[in-house]
Nucleic acid binder design. Structure first.
Lengths: 338, 338
DNA sequence: CTGAAAGCGCTAACAT
DNA sequence: ATGTTAGCGCTTTCAG
C-alpha cells in the first residue's frame, strides 16, 4: 500500500507537504503540487480510509441491521439504502439478525465501537415480541444515532420511517366493502409484529364503520412454523362463502390466490384478493394480484436521509417520524368500483 | 467514547498497563488486572476497531460486491456470506453493482484503500459482456485477494466458487429424454452470462448424445427488456407440440409453468418443466416446480472460507476453484423415471 | 513555501 | 510489575 511517507521519500519533501499538496493547499507552490500529484497518480496512491476514520472519528459508514434478507421487502429496502448511502458518500455494513434478539444485540455491540457512524435498522421479531429494547437504547445513550424503519418501537426515542399500516389496511378493506363483499377474511403471518397488529386494526375499523356489514370479522393468524398452505386450504374448506381476502403479509396473498384458482373460484367475480407488498413483486401471478404497495425504495432512501441529516447535525432536536405513503394498486384480483 | 486513556487516568496507571491488563498479560499483577477490568466493564469500554485496524493493517472486514440484490440467488448468497463471515469474526461491507461495469469498478476502488481485507464478488453482466476485467485485475495486482463466485472469468487468476453449470443442465435434459420427451425447449434470459452459455451447452450436448432424439434443439434467448411472458406465450402458440421445458435462469420456469397451466396443459403427463434455482424458492408454485438446485448457501459459505484461508495464508500458492454440487430435485412438474 | 510535531486509539518492544 | 516510546497513516497547528 502506497502511503504519504512513500511519496514524501521519493520526492525528498516532508509528509505534511505531500498531504497539503494533495489537498491543493495555498501554502504549497504550484510546482510542488504538480510533482506530488503526478507521482501520486503514477503510484496509484489512495488515502488510507482507516487512518482518516481514526483521525476524524468518523467512518462514513452506516451499519444496517435487518431481520431477514430473504424477505423481499428487506432485500429491496437494503437495495435502496445501499443506493442512497452510496450517493451520499457512505458505505454500508450489513448484519442480519435472523429475527433473533441476541444476534441483533451482538451486531449492535460489534459495530458500535467506532466501526460505523450510525445505524439503520428494522427490529427483529423476537425483540418486538419480548419488547426487549435495552440493547438498542444502550446505543442511543452513547449518542450513536439510529434510524428505525418499518418495524419500530415506541420505547425507542429516535428517528423513524414507517408506512401508514393502519390506513393502508383500512383503505383496502374499504375497497372490498365497496365491491359489495360480505365475507371478508384477513390473513396474517405477522401478528406478532407491530405492523401486523396495525394492519389488522385497520381491517377491523373498516368493517366496524360499514354498518351494512353484518358478518363477524374473520382473522386467520398463522403462527411461525404453521403451514400457510394448510391454513388457507382449511379456510376455503370451512368457509366457502368467503368473497374477499386481505393478506397483510407479503406471501399469504399469493398462496391464497393459487389455492382459490385451483378450487376454481372465479376471480375477481366471485372472490377478490388483495396482498400487501412492494409494487412489483406479486404481479407475476396470473391473474395479477392487487396489492397495497409499500414504496420500499422510498422507505430506504428516507431512512438514509434521516440518518445523514442527523449525522451532519441538520436535524431538529426532537426526533422525526416520516410516514411514507402507500398505494392501493388494483390489478386483476379485484373488481373495479366507480 | 471511552478509551484506554480514560481508564488509565481514572486508575492512575499508564495506558500500556491498561492495555496489557485487558489482555490478561502475565506482566501485570492480578490485582491491577482486576481493577482495570472492573472499571472497563463499568464504563462499558470497547476497543476502538478503527484504531486496531490501523495498527494491524487488517480490518477483519470483507467487501462483497454483487450484481443485483433483488435477484433471490444473490440475496441468498449474501445471506450465506454474512452468516459465515460473522462466524469467522468478519464483518461485510456490501456494494451492489447493478450489473454495471462502472459501478463495479467504483466499489472496488472505494474499498481497496484499507477498508476491507479482501473481496467476494460475482461479476456484473456488463463486465462479462464486454470482457472488461482490468479494474478487477488491478486489485489483484495490489495483492488484495478476491474470491469470485457464480459468474467468473478466465481472465482472472483468483480463487473461485462455481457450480457445474454444464453438468447440471446436461443432467436435467437427460432426465427429460428418459421421460421420453421429443420436443424439449430451453429458455434462458441469461445468455449473456458465462453460466448461461454453459448451461445451454449442457442441454445441447445431452440432446446430441441421445441419438434417438431427432428434433432440432430449440433455444429461446430472452434479451434484456424483452417480456418473458410474451416470449413464453409465443412459444406455446407456435410450438404446441412442446413436451419438455428447461429454464436455465431462475424465473422463466415459473412463468412457463403458469402459462402452460392456463393453456390447460396436463402437467407433467403432457409437458414437463424443470427450473434452475435455489432449493426452496420455486416450490411455492402449484404443482411444485422441479428444479436444479444450486445449493446457494454452500456457495456463499465456501466463498468466505476460501477468502479467509487466503487471508490467513492457509491457501496453496496456486488458486483454488471449488465446484459446488448441484441436485436435480424432482417435484411435481416432471414424471418419475425408474 | 516547507517542515516538525502532536495526536486520533491502540499495541508492543524496550526500559525501569 | 509498571512505564516510556514509537509507530500504524493521516491531518493540522505551529515554527521556521
Amino acid at each position: 500500500m502506497v502511503t504519504l511517507k512513500h511519496l514524501a521519500e521519493q520526492l525528498n519533501v516532508s509528509v505534511s507537504t505531500v498531504s497539503k499538496a494533495l489537498h491543493d493547499s495555498e501554502e504549497i507552490s504550484p510546482d510542488t503540487i504538480e510533482r506530488v500529484k503526478a507521482l501520486a497518480k503514477y503510484l496509484n496512491y489512495k488515502p488510507n480510509k482507516v487512518a482518516i476514520s481514526l483521525k476524524n472519528s468518523k467512518t462514513n459508514t452506516i451499519g444496517v441491521i435487518i431481520p431477514n434478507i430473504l424477505n423481499h421487502f428487506f432485500a429491496k429496502a437494503l437495495y435502496a439504502i445501499e443506493k442512497q448511502a452510496s450517493k451520499q458518500g457512505y458505505s454500508i455494513i450489513t448484519c442480519v439478525s435472523n429475527e433473533q434478539n441476541l444476534k441483533e444485540a451482538n451486531s449492535l455491540q460489534l459495530l458500535s465501537n467506532g466501526s460505523v457512524d450510525g445505524f439503520i435498522m428494522s427490529i427483529a421479531e423476537e425483540t418486538q415480541l419480548k419488547q426487549q429494547t435495552d440493547h438498542i437504547n444502550a446505543i442511543l445513550q452513547q449518542n450513536i444515532p439510529i434510524v428505525l424503519f418499518d418495524r419500530v418501537s415506541d420505547d425507542l426515542d429516535c428517528d423513524k420511517v414507517i408506512i401508514d399500516d393502519f390506513g393502508a389496511a383500512y383503505e383496502a378493506t374499504k375497497h372490498l366493502l365497496l365491491e359489495g363483499r360480505k365475507h371478508i377474511v384477513l390473513i396474517s403471518d405477522i401478528d406478532g409484529l407491530s405492523v401486523g397488529k396495525l394492519r389488522t386494526s385497520g381491517y377491523l375499523k373498516a368493517l366496524e364503520e360499514h354498518f351494512e356489514y353484518n358478518n363477524k370479522p374473520v382473522i386467520i393468524n398463522i403462527e411461525k412454523g404453521e403451514s400457510i398452505e394448510e391454513r388457507v386450504a382449511y379456510l376455503f374448506k370451512t368457509y366457502n362463502s368467503v368473497d374477499g381476502i386481505i393478506s397483510v403479509d407479503n406471501t399469504s396473498g399469493v398462496v391464497a390466490l393459487q389455492k382459490a384458482l385451483k378450487l376454481n373460484y372465479n376471480i375477481p367475480e366471485q372472490l377478490s384478493i388483495i396482498g400487501f407488498s412492494d409494487e412489483n413483486v406479486l404481479q407475476f401471478t396470473d391473474p395479477k394480484l392487487s396489492t397495497i404497495s409499500q414504496h420500499t425504495l422510498d422507505i430506504g432512501k428516507e431512512a438514509v436521509q434521516l440518518l445523514v441529516n442527523r449525522l451532519s447535525n441538520n436535524s431538529p432536536d426532537n426526533k422525526v417520524i416520516t410516514t411514507i405513503k402507500t398505494n392501493l394498486i388494483l390489478r386483476e384480483t379485484t373488481k373495479i368500483v366507480k
